[in-house]
Design a protein around this nucleic acid. Structure first.
Lengths: 346, 346
DNA sequence: CTGAAAGCGCTTACAG
DNA sequence: CTGAAAGCGCTTACAG
């Protein structure tokens, strides 16, 4: 099957290739008759413009990429696919071309972002999974490539970000626990380098402060978003601080570790210890008991990110460089009122 | 930041663009000195060849794509990301370029596979999530595009497939149940149009036959890989056939539905009813009780598929067009010996 | 070992 | 409204 090109349809239709090109690019000053004829022939021949050629010759750049950092590490939580769906849907609705580029922190050291994008004439990218100490962060700050980051905010007039309002969401989660009567609430937090870690901790502190409850530094742990580490740390916490009655975890994955630790010590969830997670990954609702958590709509995050990116690329008016996507606190069965033991604390 | 091209490095290095091109394409008949110089300059300038231009001008095609059909529907099981990792890893290890193309059954009607691939000069694709009644199946059969299908086998000398040995795996799963003393085993099967459905059913039948146990058609249900439908059907089965003591489910997602149904009827797993799933999605080990299931290594499947595809593209010797990737029966806690009631059956 | 040149499949001013 | 032509950034015979 010989590849059919613009020449073939031009010849068949008896017009020049310029004309064929024009009808395919939506030029309006084309005779209706020739336009129809070209379209008909193109259809018969099953012609589609070659995107490489187009992107080479065209000045308008309409390629956007989704860069997924450390895909395999983040795989369990399965958030990337949803973001992908959102970004992809946006490109489908508009006339952007979509590219997926998996990267790793290692690769960032070897090949600049600029190179990745130049290779494919990509005009901007949404990036997920970047940590504050990743090499690309610095590059993004000093370059002028349009970039939208998921879950991490950095400076620059060509860079935006989208996420849920992590501080507010964490605040609500902790406030939920507080309203249930819990006072000694541990925070199982993520990797210190992650922006969300800082924000979620701020929400935790704010909620406690509002209720005039002292923040106990020893109840704040950083488990690097790891189920196993969270489990270990929770075990320690449970052993050393018997007055603990609740955990707020900065990710569902860590909440799973925490729940395992709680069960290990023979306590029950939520009667003895309440747990709130963050993310609402697929797993969350299938845990026993089903996990109360902060639901983020990752597909929406992807869609919004792509939308914002396109505004940067098209040089359109930007109202806000940082977009908050709505979250909701989904209360399932890992949270309940603190049980008041006889001679309880306080 | 001006885009830097082959011309820039040629000028800087004082050579022709042809020479620069040659060093970047690994030609061996280049003076060592000029080669080093070109490389140095290219590095200083942060030059990378533009892939669009390369793919336009080059005759060798080194682009492969992963087509993911109905991504969003299959999202829960989260198998696609693993396949993606596998295919991507292969392209990284070789010098193929990787493209991801999400498609839907709807889109298949509007745009031929050929068109999708022509657009980007893609020489072959691995496709996941295709059903036997999808439009592309016919197109693949009559075209001559190198294609490797995951989980579905079709005819053609330019098409291959990779999957676990579904019949054998199902056989082992059911045999496991049989060896535990179960005799009345329901099969919660998938969508009839899926090839895996047929194969897994064959394995189920084979296992029963070997033990001379009659296959009861009424115990075989097709739940379309849906959790909810499986739940409904299992409920009916449980109601109408009280002698049932085990379920073999053709996917973990359906196993989840079945487990819900069992709990709904007040029975316990595995004491009253044993359950075996298929896939070993992330969820499986977090269920209560953790699900016994057939583990497939989807990343390996992706990697093998890409490997096979490259052989088609490069016109290399193909030993087998269908590759079986090893599976393992992972026994967790949803299966146990059939309890022998007083006056039990048989 | 290396340069000059044709060509890949398009887009887009420029004329008319 | 449409054609002719330059040009996008490369690769690759063809000479020498």
């Amino acid at each position: 099957m010989k590849k059919i090109t613009i020449k073939d349809v031009a010849k068949q239709a008896g017009v020049s290739i310029g004309t064929v090109s024009r009808v395919f690019n939506g030029y309006t000053d084309i005779g209706e008759a020739t336009k129809q004829k070209v379209l008909r022939i193109a259809d018969e021949l099953e012609y589609t413009p070659n995107l490489s050629a187009r992107s080479l010759s065209s000045k308008k750049k309409r390629n956007i990429a989704l860069l997924l950092n450390n895909l395999e590490l983040n795989n369990k939580a399965n958030l990337s696919m949803d973001i992908l769906s959102g970004v992809y849907q946006y490109t489908q609705e508009t006339d952007f071309e979509f590219f997926l580029i998996p990267i790793t922190t290692e690769q960032q050291k070897e090949k600049s972002l600029q190179k990745f994008l130049n290779e494919r004439d990509i005009s901007g990218a949404v990036i997920q999974g970047l940590k504050t100490d990743d090499p690309y962060i610095k590059e993004i700050e000093k370059s002028s490539i349009p970039i939208v980051l998921v879950d991490i905010e950095i400076a620059g007039d060509h860079v935006g970000s989208v996420s849920v309002d992590n501080e507010q969401a964490a605040y609500e989660a902790v406030e939920h626990l507080l309203s249930l009567g819990h006072e000694h609430i541990a925070l199982m937090n993520g990797r210190k380098e992650a922006k969300v870690t800082v924000n979620r901790e701020a929400g935790y502190r704010k909620a406690l402060k509002e209720r005039q409850i002292e923040v106990r530094q020893e109840l704040i742990q950083y488990a690097n978003f790891s189920e196993d580490i969270a489990q270990m740390m929770a075990l320690d916490l449970l052993k050393n601080y018997p007055d603990l009655t609740a955990f707020f975890c900065a990710s569902d994955i860590m909440a799973i570790g925490v729940m395992k630790a709680i069960k290990e010590t023979g306590k029950t969830i939520p009667e003895d210890i309440s747990v709130v997670g963050f993310d609402d990954i697929t797993l969350a609702q299938y845990l026993t008991p089903p996990l109360s958590t902060v639901t983020q709509n990752m597909k929406d995050i992807g869609y919004q990110a792509a939308t914002l990116l396109s505004r940067f690329i098209l040089n359109e008016e930007i109202e806000r460089q940082h977009i908050f996507v709505p979250h909701v606190l989904t209360i399932r069965e890992t949270t309940t009122e603190r049980k008041t033991k006889s001679g309880a604390l306080r």
